[in-house]
Design a protein around this nucleic acid. Structure first.
Lengths: 237, 237
DNA sequence: GGAGTCTCCTTAACGTCGTTAAATAGAACG
DNA sequence: CGTTCTATTTAACGACGTTAAGGAGACTCC
């Protein structure tokens, strides 16, 4: 009895979250309203409070579904596989998953990592230490990648929401950028503020930094105190 | 006449924005309400619509004030100065400025860069090209730094808002992390998910990547196609 | 110096939101 | 049959952003 009833409720919850995610893609986070969601389910708004404590709990579950239910595809680093390519693939997959739902970055922003994400990070740390990383360096690398990912997708989706990328606003952008020659040249040569290239390149930068860090720390016994940025390079040029 | 009246309005706008920023620090973004702000100014809510088209315009102006009015301290890269240290200082200053106001990251997230920010970026691009960067690489570097900064501070402030960092929740965190040995070790050796070290280190990674990119591109005539991550390392095993 | 204009604010209200309280239809159970 | 539990409805509350209409006070101009 207990089992049957609980599973019924769970199924209902899943159905609600699923509908909410579909609705999110249709109308965006701003207009994702309990009343609207309820209507979509053929129900009155307060009915949702039987299944969820409040709206935040629904949103939390939505982020968990986005983050975990999709894309746990990454297996541990294979013997002899390039950790750079492997890590890059993970980050790109994360971006792909985030971009598979409208406003997902704003939705996810500031949510605690769920079980699935913790397990993934644990596996990454294991793999990276196996190729020689200090576990702290590995953790900080993952943190950097994750911050970059979050920040990038956030701006990317915000631009999309504003309709940037439409050529209608391109002319306007050119006028604004006119007084800034370098910026202007860069924009023209790139083709938009948030191109694929910007993501790939930023990702590469961090991985390159991690590679340098790995080399420096495995070169000496305890890899610490090498790559400091603050004033350790004598000014040259 | 015209001048006097316009400046009066401008002063009022400034006073409103200033009060709004103070109120933001007091009550947080969620409870920053037009009615509350108006009350703080000794005025009724609709009065604000004389000075601002809508709430978003007020928020936009708040972000512009945060981003520009504070911390335009960075001058162009001096002759012989280390560009790494110089850039690092800028990013750290940006973080300091963001963290000087509650919820500033969420406020800023998805706002178009204002005039001041454009000018700053232009100056950075100028300085970086002067030390040998291709303008596109410089732009992508700045983009990466900015995404990292935004993502990091967003999580950082979200944690703060949730009261993470309180030792009350530390025990709980330990229990959650128990099944993940690497994660656990990393956390213990770091001392929290969002430490100063994580920021400094992530920043260093990106700068290190930029340094490598600079070296690679100045080594050949046209620096392109060197640091690709996708599949250039043969997967084996 | 009175009429008109402009600035800045008020009062009143609208529609929507998240959320709560209370009542209720229907199934499950003794 | 009566009770209990599940899942929902109806009604309402307070707060939000926003709009409409008007009014008090200063400034301008003939």
């Amino acid at each position: 009895m207990n089992v049957v009833k609980l599973s019924t409720v769970a199924l209902e919850r899943d159905k609600i979250v699923e509908t909410a995610l579909r609705l999110l893609d249709e109308v965006g986070l701003e207009k994702l309203t309990l009343r609207r969601l309820a209507a979509e389910l053929g129900v009155q708004a307060p009915a949702l409070y039987w299944h969820f404590k409040n709206k935040q709990e629904l949103l939390d579950e939505m982020t968990e579904v986005i983050a975990v239910q999709k894309g746990p595809r990454l297996g541990p680093l294979a013997e002899g596989e390039s950790w750079e390519a492997w890590l890059a693939e993970w980050v790109k997959e994360q971006r792909r998953v985030l971009n598979s739902h409208r406003d997902s970055a704003r939705l996810t922003a500031g949510t605690h990592p769920g079980e699935g994400m913790l397990a993934t990070v644990e596996m990454i740390l294991g793999s990276l230490t196996r190729v020689g990383f200090d576990v702290v360096d590995a953790m900080w690398g993952v943190t950097a990648l994750s911050s970059f990912l979050g920040g990038f997708v956030l701006e990317e989706q915000a631009d999309r929401e504003r309709g940037v990328g439409d050529w209608s606003q391109f002319q306007e952008a050119v006028e604004i950028l006119a007084p800034y020659p370098h910026l202007c040249e860069a924009m023209i040569r790139i083709g938009g503020p948030q191109s694929e290239g910007a993501f790939e390149h930023g990702l590469t930068l961090i991985l390159e930094g991690m590679r340098a860090r790995l080399a420096a720390s495995s070169g000496r016994q305890e890899g610490h105190g090498d790559l400091e940025v603050e004033g350790d390079r004598p000014a040259a040029g």
